[in-house]
Design a protein around this nucleic acid. Structure first.
Length: 494
RNA sequence: CGAGGUGUAGCGCAGUCCGGUUAGCGCAUCUGGUUUGGGACCAGAGGGUCGGGGGUUCGAAUCCCUUCACCUCGACCA
């Protein structure tokens, strides 16, 4: 009983923290606000990266790398952008240390002050657009479709593993286009890539939409988002795609010769998802026994545990297991065989449940005699004994079922948590129950701020799709009674 | 950055109020043996700057000052 989790019902935050640490995903580092992503957690992130990267390449993007440091002057070129990020930037002021005159350790050498201070990138728009300026002269140089996998730093007051850390890993796509329309389409296209990835790979349903002005990215014309719902009823912004208009092109003077020989500013987008997706994944599927991973992201999809009474029996079982492993691997299924004698089977069962391994196989003396194997699925915790003959097909099918089942489960939960409110009173009541609420809003930042102040709920987005019968019909703002074109999505969020 | 809480072995904790043996317990680790179909058992062993610094005292995990880290809740944010 070494690794008990706090139950979700008792304390959801504690459950999350326990799980991240006990499932060996990550831990707090010696540096405040920063985390160490452990091998098991990083393996999941790598799977996410592979899937996303493949999708980026399929949509015509190429990877590149831009510097970690940004000259301070760059950041201030776009007014909204600097205002949005200035409060949370780490700044490099010196380039050298020297031994402390009193002999104790090292101190910053005051002689080594930088002429111009450097910002540790909180995002890379500025350094990238200062570079794109040199890459673009004519419409023939467009579009530029680049992505980078990188770390960024945002000096956060309060951090939580994966959900908000001072340093985090992400990808940021930065594209440059000839026309408004093309850039706008790119931003939408990448939002769809994120949504497809979330739903089909993470098994996490998301709501696509556009952000209100206050929630918009600093420097964007429009920010598109995918919003997911966690099991505690709070929303989590899981990915964003920005239509930047000509804002950064104007700030960095990036112009090009158009097809009809005129000069115009370049149109831009940027889009990103981060290690925050790990938090989303955890809080979407996992239970009081531990992590529940979709098969498409599990570091290994199947674990096999032998149950033996002697070394001799173990070698008989191992021989049989080897055959099964070969067949599974031939079908592209990843398998781990845990034949260590250090832990008993029961301990292993609990451990692999904690780590969210989608399918567990157990083989003991009885199975050896009967030509069977025990199959346990993590999502439902149900067990059955099946014939070894053709088990690889059975498992392949089961992994597919698990992938779909956990999506359906999350989808059904979300469905019960999308509600509508027609009056502010009703809204205040329902927001306490958690979940998404669709309500009418007059479109002003003042009303939005008032709602946030009084209920802690924010506008997550104006959804593109319809979730209830009358989402897209006009109405009147629940607070001010002014006209509203359609309902918008509210929630308390991470 | 505000309010509260916690720092004692790898992990979880007791001891702190009321200063006084060699700082204890559970889990984990190591050795040997018995075990193995849901977190095994017995025997033995190793492991401590009591978060750091300063002070009070004959004597400090315990009292005082200071500092750091982490957790929970607020403000801010992906």
């Amino acid at each position: 009983m070494a690794k008990e989790l706090t139950p979700r019902s008792e304390n959801y935050s504690q459950w999350y923290n326990d799980l991240v640490v006990k499932a060996d995903l990550a831990e707090n580092a010696a540096v405040r606000g920063c985390m160490v992503i452990k091998p098991y957690g990083y393996a999941i992130w790598e799977k996410m990266q592979n899937e996303l990267d493949r999708r980026f390449k399929e949509t015509g993007h190429q990877n590149a790398y831009f510097p970690l440091f940004i000259p301070k002057s760059f950041l201030s070129k776009e007014a909204d952008h600097v205002e949005g990020f200035a409060k949370e930037c780490a700044v490099v002021t010196h380039y050298r240390l020297k031994t402390n005159p009193d002999g104790t350790g090292v101190v910053v050498d005051p002689e080594a002050k930088l002429e111009e201070e450097l910002i540790v990138r909180p995002t890379s728009e500025t350094i990238i657009w200062s570079t794109y300026k040199n890459w673009i002269q004519s419409y023939r140089d467009l579009p530029i479709l680049c992505n980078q996998w990188a770390n960024v730093v945002r000096w956060e007051m309060r951090t939580r593993l994966f959900l908000r850390t001072a340093e985090f890993l992400w990808q940021e796509g930065h594209t440059a286009h000839e026309t408004y329309q093309e850039a706008e389409e790119e931003a939408q296209k990448m939002l769809n890539v994120y949504a497809d990835f979330a739903e089909n790979i993470m098994s996490m349903p998301v709501i696509k939409g556009v952000k209100s002005e206050t929630e918009r990215f600093a420097g964007a014309v429009d920010t598109y988002t995918i919003e997911a719902l966690m099991q505690d009823g709070k929303a989590l912004q899981s990915g964003t795609s920005h239509f930047l208009g000509q804002n950064f092109a104007k700030a960095f003077d990036v112009t090009f010769m158009t097809r009809d020989g005129k000069t115009d500013y370049v149109w831009a987008t940027s889009w990103g998802v981060s290690t925050r997706l790990m938090g989303a994944l955890i809080m979407t599927h996992s239970d009081d026994n531990g992590l529940v991973l979709p098969p498409k992201l599990a570091p290994f999809q199947v674990v096999i545990v032998p149950i033996f009474k002697s070394q001799e029996q173990l070698s008989q079982i191992s021989e049989k297991v080897q055959e099964i492993m070969d067949k599974l691997k031939a079908k592209g299924i990843s398998v781990k065989y845990d034949d260590s004698d250090a832990k008993k089977p029961g301990w292993k069962f609990a451990e692999y449940e904690l780590k969210g391994v989608p399918v567990r196989l157990a083989m003991g003396g009885r199975d050896l005699e009967n030509g069977t194997i025990e199959v346990c699925r993590r999502d439902t915790l149900t067990k059955e004994t099946v014939n070894i003959e053709g088990v690889e097909n059975y498992i392949a099918d089961l992994l597919d079922k698990i992938q779909k089942n956990i999506y359906q489960k999350a989808f059904d939960y979300r469905k019960t948590m999308i509600k509508k409110a027609d009056s502010y009173e009703e809204f205040k009541e329902k927001i306490e129950e958690g979940g998404f609420i669709l309500a009418h809003w007059d479109g002003t930042s003042e009303t939005e701020a008032k709602i946030k102040e009084e209920t802690k709920a924010t506008i997550r987005c104006v959804p593109f799709d319809t979730y209830l019968d009358d989402d897209k019909e006009p109405g009147t703002c629940m607070v001010t009674g002014k006209p509203s074109k359609s309902r918008v999505l509210f929630a308390r969020s991470y």
